[in-house]
Design a binder for these strands. Structure first.
Lengths: 225, 225
DNA sequence: AGGGTTGTGTCAATCGATTGACAAGAATTT
DNA sequence: AAATTCTTGTCAATCGATTGACACAACCCT
């Protein structure tokens, strides 16, 4: 079924394509060429064509790409054409903030449960979802067919909990804890290391400082890399 | 002062080095070789040496690297040997969660102010910090020598607010809004596109599914790339 | 103090990712 | 209907990042 390994660099760009295509759809635009899209997105037309061709020919010569069709195809590739069921592990500030962020649900990521080891928090409701004790987690994952666990607990217990999650058959872990998780290769881990991100910003601020004699031209490109 | 452009790939790995060096320090370990470190971090010794040499020779032949010294040097490189003053723009769930996350302060990122356009929220206190109306933002940035603005507002107003931040001389923007920000090149933007990250996870889960006939070997490497 | 060992800094080779170029197919114009 | 324009898919070239190899410096043991 799988032919060749697809690079994470390409995958990482797909959500951004999806975002711009969604904007175009909202504006009622039906077709777009790689050149037009690259102008808007501040990238090269060649990269867009190369990226899309990794998954097959979605465009048509002399016409370009159909916005709605391409949008749907990228959704399928990313696996967000179906619902994902998530649980939050760690009902602290961040965990609660994520549950309250309704945009995820709009994209098909549905929060089904919240777990915490603190008995004082258990029983409390966050956006209608009851916080449950950790002991119930394994059963809950199996009973509710949970795809993804969101780890918003301190690093001290993260590795242990990740092990537990692996044992009860979770498919992916969205990891906000500031550690690398050693899990079997068939479990996917996506790290969101917020403090790493802040440190990168700190570096980039400082390095701009140092080259302050250089010209300060406006570039206007806000994409991450 | 600047000699050659340093790649973001290298910068992106520095916080991870710092994390593992901190762990070694806590264990009381004084010296480490690139080989030992690469074994722990699941990378190559060559990459570690190459990365560190971008900034100068921190090691000694036949000895390796002094953990404490290297730790301090990387902190200096990242610019986290001094304090950074931040404001939160957008006092929603995520903004409040970030203010309450004490680990940032421990690393020298100090939250000085919170701003929101909703008058109902203004005046409220989050971890001792009063939420102020947006009108006061520009003055506050100048008066309090603010480095970094954290953007936790909806995408609809993000571009406009970023423009305002640029005008009053902010140095960096930590952007949680789901848009690319067009700002002058001397302002650094670090994007945290949470839904993009979730979509990547979704893809990787699905792609593992498809190649399920392949061997399920344990790899134990939790690093992001 | 000398010899063996360790391990860095660096250069070269490999590997992967991005960009450029163009042939050919489809649309549009005349 | 033919000519022209547009624009993809793809191949080749370039560019950048990672890995491997090794000379030589510093350490450690006897």
């Amino acid at each position: 079924m799988e032919e060749k390994e697809i690079s994470q660099a390409v995958i990482g760009r797909l959500p951004r394509y999806l975002r711009y295509l969604g904007d175009l759809k909202d504006e009622g635009i039906e077709r777009v060429s790689s050149q037009e899209l690259s102008d808007i997105m501040q990238t090269t037309a060649s990269q867009i064509r190369q990226d899309l061709n990794t998954f097959g020919g979605f465009g048509q010569q002399g016409y370009g790409y159909n916005v709605g069709y391409l949008y749907d195809e990228i959704r399928k590739i990313l696996g967000i054409d179906r619902e994902h069921r998530l649980i939050i592990v760690g009902a602290g500030h961040l965990g609660q903030a994520l549950v309250n962020y309704t945009n995820f649900e709009r994209r098909g990521f549905i929060f089904r449960g919240i777990f915490d080891c603190d008995p004082k928090i258990c029983g409390k409701k966050v956006r209608g979802i009851t916080v449950r004790p950790m002991e119930e987690m394994a059963g809950f994952i199996r009973d509710n067919d949970i795809d993804i666990a969101v780890l918003t607990i301190p690093k001290t217990s993260a590795v242990e909990v990740a092990q537990k999650l692996a044992d009860c058959g979770i498919r992916g872990i969205w990891n906000f804890a500031h550690v690398d998780l050693p899990v079997p290769a068939y479990i996917q881990v996506e790290n969101v290391h917020l403090s790493d991100s802040l440190m990168k910003l700190s570096y980039n601020i400082s390095s701009v400082q140092e080259e302050s004699e250089t010209d300060r031209k406006v570039d206007g490109n806000g994409q991450n890399r």
